[in-house]
Amino acid sequence: MNSKVTNRIALSLIVLCAVIMVSTLAALLGYILVKGLTNISWHFLTSESSAFMAGGGIKDQLWNSFYVLIITMILTIPIGTSGGIYLAEYARPGKLTSFIRSCVEVLASLPSIVVGMFGMLIFVNYFGFKFSVLSGALALTVFNLPVIVRVTEDGFRALPLHQKEGGLALGLTHWHTIKTILLPEAFPSILTGIILSAGRVFGESAALLFTAGMSTPNLDFTNWNPASPNSPLNLFRSAETLSVHIWAVNTSGIIPDIQAVANGSSAVLVICVLMFNLLARAVGKMINQKLSGR
């Protein structure tokens, strides 16, 4: 067999794999969107879900998903980026560092249902946070932290060494070099990573089943006092998110329009995650262009 033929075979195999991948994705997205889009209406997005009757919406679930996501990010981003900066810039190669790094890897590969069980035992039961936004966000923090650490560390490691040398050679301290030179340069890749991980957190359900709960109190969207039990901002109320809602409706729902609600919710969820991905690309590209001065 001559090399030309080998080349052809390799190329066709690669193209075949790419086609399989793309068509699977397209089929999946198409199926979800075609089935779901017809169920999405302004009414669906802005009304409360119903327990028995048809025609319920997903207003609270949608809000909960974003709220849990925001709390999770507030908890994860400072800790995760600091950890990543530590691993990339300060940690000296040695036993402790490789131990920390393998901990991060193990944490990243934990099945989310296990994280959920852990969250239930620790945050819900031990700390007594009950099924709440906070418990859910803390469980998702465990789930998301290693991703942010990894993204930050990789972002810093990808920077050329001569930038760091340039800063240090000017008599800047290591920290000041990180703060004024390296962090702004690594920022686009870190931000892209954060937005992508936000998509993952947004769609997560297993870790939330036993932590944020499968119900939501009657939220009063005119009451923004975080201490009041039916305020949307209350951290200590249970909060069923969109993906948990899909699961709950499908497995134990007694409403007559299960199919419609599940399809509509799935479509909304997928659209949100898609938007996170597109946003990540757009923001990364924009900042890159701004930084390179064009």
């Binding site: 050329p160 001569h162 050679a169 000017l170 340069e185």
Partner: peptide, 15 residues
Amino acid sequence: RTEIGMVFQQPNPFP
């Protein structure tokens, strides 16, 4: 390093 500065082989202006 503020008294003994350095310039490198590869020009390295900050972005």
